[in-house]
Design a protein around this nucleic acid. Structure first.
Lengths: 215, 215
DNA sequence: CCTTTTATATGACGAGCATCATATAAACCG
DNA sequence: CGGTTTATATGATGCTCGTCATATAAAAGG
């Protein structure tokens, strides 16, 4: 069938979007090409007209997921003072909502223990995503003048703490333990950044909106 | 063949030991029953004389791995003052050596993003391991009288930070980024616990031994 | 309207996998 | 020493998967 010029690109993009969800939900190994195509309303054979291999799909999907996360972060915190942006991000990231929505969550948390078993190219895409995320956090930390240490270093340790907490909170089955892990991490991170609710109350920017914005 | 009374138990145990390594290295999905048996010098069919299913194997192996980690921790830090024990543990955990030795490392780090996709029983075993680990850390924190907050809460947030840092350091392919993630996390955690090298130098206990002891 | 193009469909191949039924062989018991 | 026990071996089943060769059909262009 001959479709419009944009049709293939649209299908390609739709495949990436679905793959991004499946990737985080099922992991790289359990994302099956056939299932992906079925979810897109297509049959398995057409896959190789879009991607040269499953690995190529995984890499493109991962990049897209990282990019989507950055966009969401930027959109949700634009106009906010840096401290509030940081507070909002930590509140979003280290939350039961993020924990319960793997399919739409941060790939760092969703895929940490899978990545070491993936191809070098996949891990390189992971690198890029992590670097940009650390960079984005470090930028806000710098602007906020949280000068206890180098902002890049602080950003890196904050990201580890956030990702570790959410990952563990998903890994356990006991809901109470899971909630406790999240809360412990969230409060300690916000304290380190000086963005607890008490800290932010001293500033004038209205806080009420933000919990809605970040998915 | 009829073997000595202990033979089957020995084989069972050997299978668990090998499975523990493979589990951390390859993940639950990629641990293949056939490969496990081959590594043990046996053939695939005999497996079901030892375990009623692959899932049962994974659970037993995970429990064994958690137990092994506890033993190692206890043995390596016994006799140490609690602050030194904590410092030694953080130094071991958040290290390039731990990062590079997945097969013998902490299961929390190695399996966080796999666990949510495993059976409920598997995750329950994960629960138990995490709880005991947090408990062990909290006990030392309590003894050390690091009283900024509830010791259980502090222990939970420290564990997330450690596990997250090592997991991310394994997930990326850029060695420099990987090293930086580890170092940033290690120093910030030790600072929070008050167990930096400078802090411990004030006390009398000799520090030189410990780096050797933990794996 | 017919040819050419091309996105998707069909169908097949071979590999890897968990599981299980059944065979085998060696050592202990009598 | 011969029979019974039982840990392990053989072999098969049925499933899922990635990949690819080939077929199909619809739309655009002449």
């Amino acid at each position: 069938m001959r479709y419009s010029d944009t049709h293939k690109a649209e299908t390609h993009d739709r495949l990436l979007q679905i793959a991004g969800r499946m990737l985080r939900e099922k992991g790289p190994q359990n994302l099956a090409v056939g299932e992906l195509m079925k979810e897109a309303g297509l049959t398995h054979g057409g896959f190789y007209a879009h991607f040269k291999s499953k690995d190529a799909l995984l890499i493109e999907a991962l990049e897209r997921v990282f990019a989507g996360g950055r966009n969401k972060f930027e959109r949700a915190t634009e106009g906010m003072p840096p401290r509030h942006a940081l507070g909002a991000y930590v509140d979003f990231y280290v939350s039961t909502r993020h924990r319960d929505g793997i399919a739409n969550g941060c790939p760092v948390t969703a895929l940490t223990s899978d990545s070491p078993r993936q191809s070098k190219k996949f891990r390189a895409a992971f690198d890029a995503g992590v670097k940009r995320l650390v960079g984005a956090l470090a930028a806000r930390i710098g602007e906020a003048r949280i000068q206890t240490e180098d902002s890049q270093t602080l950003a890196a340790s904050i990201l580890s703490a956030m990702a570790g907490a959410v990952a563990i909170s998903r890994a356990v089955s006991d809901k109470r333990l899971s909630d406790e892990m999240l809360e412990a991490a969230r409060e300690s991170i916000k304290a380190r950044l000086g963005v607890t609710d008490a800290d932010l109350a001293k500033e004038k920017f209205p806080r009420s909106v933000r919990s809605e914005v970040l998915q």
